[in-house]
Design a protein around this nucleic acid. Structure first.
Lengths: 230, 230
DNA sequence: CGAGTCTTTGAGGGGAGTCAATTCGTGTGG
DNA sequence: CCACACGAATTGACTCCCCTCAAAGACTCG
C-alpha cells in the first residue's frame, strides 16, 4: 500500500539499535556453502532497492547483516510481502529468469551477491553446487508452506507465530527485535496495522510479551505463545 | 476437517464422467521429460492413500490420469489442502526425506512413480535431470506464491480464481470439471463449504457461470471472472 | 428402497476491516 | 537546547463479511 522510498536514505536511524547479529562469514553457515564463496560483498543503505519486479534476475543474494523485504504489488494496488530475509538467508533465486518481486533493504544491508550465470555454470559441473540450489528452493518451499498455513489462522495466532519466528531467527535471548515497520508485518501476515497494534496490546495485557519500544519486544511467557499457535 | 477414508474404495463412481484429459505419454510433456522415462505406471483406486505424512519420501510421482490432493493435518485438527495435482503435475518431491503431507487419490489415478534415490543418482551425472528437479521445485514455488496471494483476498475472489485456474489446467473448453468435493475446495481456499456454495450461487445469479452438476460448471462470462480477480 | 454422504439454504453472532482521531517517537530548524 | 513538523503507532466506534450452528434437499450406492 505504502509507496517505497524512491531515494535511499543514508542518514543514521533511530532504529539502528535494532541490529540483528551478522551471519558469521567464517562460521559453519557460509564455510560449508559452495555458492557464497563465489560472490562479492555489497552494501545497500536503508531503503535502497536491491532489485525490482520484472527485472532480469541476474544475481543471487545472501544476507550477511541487516534485513531485506521482498514483496509484490498486486493489480488492486495492495502489497504482499513475500518474505523477510535475515542474515544467512538467500533471496533472488527466481523460478524464471525475471524477478517476480521487489527487494528492498529494510535497514542498512550487507549481502553476498553472486552472478546467477556463474552459479548455473558451476552447478553443471559440481554436484554440491547443484544440490545447494535445490536446498535453497526447498527452504523457500517450506517458508511458503508455513505462510500458507498461517494465512488460514486468526490474527492472534498469526502474530504470535510471527513473534516466535522472529525470536527463533534472530537472537536466542528473550528480546525480539522487529526491524521492519508495522505496515510490513501487516502486509506479510495479511492483516491491518490496526489489528497488529491491538493484538500486541492484548498479548501484553495477558502478560505474555512486554513492549520495550515499537521495534523491540520481550518474551515474558514463551510457552503460552507456543501453546497459542499449537 | 473430514477424516480421510481409511479403506480405498474401488467401486465405479458416479463422478467418473468428470474425467480429466490424460497427459499424453507420447506427447511433448513427457517425451521431453527425462525423469518420467525412469518410472513405472501405477494405478490407485479412488480414495486410496498414495503416501502419508512423516513417511519416508522414497518416490517421486507424476499424474497421468485422474486427480490427487496433498494435504496436512494441523495440530488443531483442521485440514489444509496443499495442492491439487492434475495430469502432468509432479508431486512428492519434498524438501526433506520425509513427506510433509498426505497424498490421496481423488478419483481413480494413474501415476508414473520413480525412485527418488534413482533420480538423485541420475541427477549427479546428467544436467538435464538436475535441471528438471529445479524446474519442478520452481513450479511448486510459483503455485505456493499464488496460493499465498489468494489467501489475502475475499471469498468471491478466491473462488473465481479457483474456477479460472481449474479451467486453465483442465480442458480448454468452457466446461470446467471440479473432480474434488466442496470440502476439498474449501480447505484449499481457506473458506467453509457453505461459503463455497453461497458464492457459486451468487456467480450463477450474476450469469457468469452455470452449474451443470455440483462437479461440472460452465463458464458463461469468463471476462467478468477475470476482471473480478483483476 | 433406504442409509449415508454431499450440497444447498437459512438465521444469527463474532472477528477483523474501515474510517477517524489521538498519541508517540524522530528528525529538523530556529 | 527547545519547539515544531511529520510519519509511525495506537486507540476508538462502527460495519460487514464470513464463520458457526442447524436443517432441509440432492445424489449415490448398497
Amino acid at each position: 500500500m505504502a509507496a517505497e522510498l524512491p531515494v535511499p536514505r543514508c542518514s543514521v536511524s533511530c532504529y539502528d539499535d535494532c541490529v540483528l547479529p551478522p551471519a558469521k562469514l567464517t562460521g559453519r553457515a557460509l564455510a560449508d556453502d559452495p555458492i557464497a564463496k563465489m560472490g562479492t560483498l555489497v552494501r545497500y543503505p536503508r531503503g535502497a532497492e536491491i532489485f525490482g519486479q520484472d527485472q532480469p534476475a541476474e544475481y543471487l543474494y545472501q544476507v550477511v547483516t541487516g534485513a531485506v523485504r521482498t514483496f509484490r504489488i498486486l493489480t488492486d494496488g495492495r502489497r504482499q510481502i513475500c518474505a523477510f530475509h535475515l542474515p544467512g538467508d538467500y533471496f533472488g533465486l527466481e523460478p524464471g529468469d525475471q524477478h517476480a518481486s521487489y527487494a528492498f533493504a529494510i535497514s542498512d544491508v550487507q549481502a553476498i551477491v553472486t552472478e546467477r550465470e556463474l552459479v548455473a555454470r558451476r552447478a553443471d559441473r559440481r554436484r554440491d553446487v547443484a544440490k545447494q540450489l535445490l536446498v535453497i528452493r526447498g527452504k523457500e518451499i517450506q517458508n511458503l508452506q508455513d505462510q500458507t498455513l498461517l494465512l488460514t489462522k486468526t490474527a492472534e495466532e498469526r502474530i504470535a507465530w510471527f513473534i516466535l519466528q522472529m525470536a527463533r531467527r534472530t537472537t536466542s535471548s528473550s528480546t525480539v527485535s522487529l526491524p521492519m515497520p508495522r505496515r510490513d508485518i501487516a502486509d506479510y501476515l495479511g492483516v491491518t496495522v490496526e489489528t497488529i497494534s491491538r493484538t500486541l496490546g492484548q498479548l501484553e495485557s495477558a502478560g505474555w510479551i512486554e513492549s520495550m519500544s515499537p521495534r523491540q519486544i520481550q518474551l515474558k511467557n514463551q510457552a503460552a505463545l507456543i501453546r497459542l499457535v499449537s
